[in-house]
Write a protein that binds this DNA or RNA. Structure first.
Lengths: 350, 350
DNA sequence: TGTTAGAATGTAACCGTTTACATTCGTCTT
DNA sequence: AAGACGAATGTAAACGGTTACATTCTAACA
């Protein structure tokens, strides 16, 4: 219906020029109070609101940020996205969402987004661009900020995953554990930088405590609760099973808990479990974990990007490190006193 | 960097008019093969890509859909959003995201979005507009589709929640349960239409089976796993506790399971639990549930909206009902044989 | 009262496309 | 070879704002 009134309609109605209307809209001080009133009345009367597209074209900025993230189902991504959303809404920026479900998509989408003029900036969550992509972005001058990814060129917000891995492992060691498994995603993909670092932290902590690393205690599969469950079953069936598992994410840690239940292994009496991330379910399940500020990482990343858009882009540190926090809860405890090997296999309830 | 080349640059380079370039861009048939080639070469050479903003302004359509949803943390919303995203990406539409975290926001955002020209259409997830909002949307002619919400005016995709409530309850009744509790959100808010309908289904099934409704078996709180846990503890401490709980969402059903564990009540031997939605965790936890096609609801809703934008808007049914599915899993079973009343209170593990 | 500076407003170009309409080109009749 | 007609291309006016610059007020001063 309503053929949306334009700035010209308002100008005509208020008996001023469109420039004046525009000034009122952008509250320029250079307009007399009386005139301003007249224009405001006209705006009111015509129920006018400026066409954002025209405005974007004219100003050359879109007031829109593209957010790209993978694996949209995982709670940690959602939590980060919430932070981003909040920050953008607060600053009246629009957020257009690109979820990446395959590697090819990632390349395609980035190529499309790189041609500026579509959005003012790019927020990449857990998706470090490769050299080619980086070149493309730089060439086109697209302001870009990464969340949960390291990068030489782009500003990024991260946590010290290696330190986190160390914290988690040390916590277990301090409790008296020696047989400590590490469960993670595959570590060789271009993503999962953080997982690799957590792994390094794990190795580091072992080394410091003079505990030899055992290959059989390091297990990988694609990310997921179910995958972790399966991996853990195997771990627990080893001749010399671990007394503690450090899972590289809470989602995976929950899978570990499932497996323990499957095999009737009591937590934390018989097996300690520590996760990483601090998603809601972790609190809920009383899971000991290394908590990272997920929501805050979204806030921070978006904040940095907005700063870049406003101020001169330089003079900021390129790396923002958010703090980690060991949250001791109910899934970690000293290892069982007797070193008896378990080979439990009774199937437990849901 | 690169001061993005424009259509004029291309025209100059190819020695044609901008109209011709535009024709090539929109593959109009009215351009000679030779000319087309020349233009394409120019485009290639200048690495040109059309400015989407200018295009939007000129065409009067934004090729963008706004998606509005509440409670962005809950998995069922995320799942629906994924479906929407997929459909929009497939059709090269942009998706701008508005998450609503409070009632006030809902009003504000809708008002902003109602002024067309910002987006081509609106997809509202679990957010039925009230009369005033409806009027606004109609007045401005914003194509709108609702997902998981009923409405007289707007096309919407739903499931038959009342039938679902009935299915769930009947399932329990058929297993032999008579003392069946219903756990849900508060039913009096403008949202939660579906919860109300599921409740009606519950009441209906009871009535059919001649089981009197008991007030004490109907408990409400705001949505959430924790809230459900607390409510359930109270339920189980009743003098005559239910032998089965129908939770109006899987998230809440999971809270019920938590409470059962707290009180050392065995599932399904001592208590049957059925949920609603079919989120991933439900499958994971072997939770019996009424599964609704969440992802599909997103696909369907977005599909309808896109159709509206393409074709003449009328001639489609306004209501799309997706099928429900009872998934029998491990959390429902016949009630315990002896009718002994339980008053368990031992605190269980995590 | 006539200047004049500075404030208020207006004019018109521009942002980068699409597209209605005008023009030119090539080809086919006759 | 002139005319006619359709196909190919060009011209210019939108789309709805912002903004540099030109113009007109207003008021203060000499």
């Amino acid at each position: 219906m309503s053929a949306e009134s334009t700035i010209r309609d308002v100008a005509r109605y208020a008996n001023v020029s469109i420039a004046t209307v525009s000034r009122v809209l952008n509250n320029s001080p250079a307009v007399r109070e009386k005139t301003r009133h007249r224009v405001e009345e006209a705006i009111e009367a015509l129920d006018y609101s400026p066409n954002p597209i025209a405005r974007k074209l004219s100003r050359g900025r879109t007031h829109t940020i593209a957010v790209v993230l993978p694996l949209f189902t995982l709670p940690s991504f959602v939590e980060r996205l919430r932070g981003v959303h909040q920050k953008l809404v607060d600053n009246a920026y629009d957020l257009v969402l690109y979820s990446i479900e395959s590697d090819r998509q990632w390349d395609e989408q980035l190529a499309r987004l790189a041609s500026l003029s579509r959005v003012d900036g790019l927020l990449l969550i857990s998706l470090p661009p490769n050299d080619e992509q980086t070149a493309l972005l730089l060439e086109n001058g697209v302001p870009t900020v990464l969340i949960d990814a390291h990068h030489d060129t782009f500003r990024h917000v991260i946590v010290d995953d290696e330190a986190g891995g160390q914290m988690a492992t040390s916590h277990l060691i301090e409790l008296g554990h020696k047989r400590i498994a590490f469960l993670s995603d595959f570590l060789d993909t271009p993503f999962h930088q953080s997982m690799r670092l957590r792994y390094r932290g794990y190795r580091g902590a072992l080394a410091v405590a003079d505990i030899p690393f055992r290959d059989s205690y390091h297990v990988c599969d694609t990310h997921g609760r179910h995958e972790a469950r399966v991996l853990t079953r195997d771990l627990l069936k080893l001749d010399d099973p671990p007394t503690a598992v450090f899972a590289s994410s809470d989602t995976q840690a929950i899978g570990v808990l499932d497996a323990a239940q499957d095999l009737n292994v009591r937590i934390p009496d018989e097996l300690s479990v520590i996760g990483f991330d601090g998603i809601r379910d972790a609190e809920y399940l009383d899971l000991t974990t290394i908590e990272q500020p997920l929501y805050q990482s979204g806030i921070a990343g978006a904040g940095i990007l907005l700063d870049m858009l406003r101020n001169e882009p330089d003079g900021m540190r390129t790396e923002t490190v958010l703090p980690l926090n060991l949250i001791r809860r109910a899934t970690t405890a000293p290892p069982p006193a007797g070193r008896a090997k378990r080979t439990g296999s009774r199937k437990g309830g849901g």
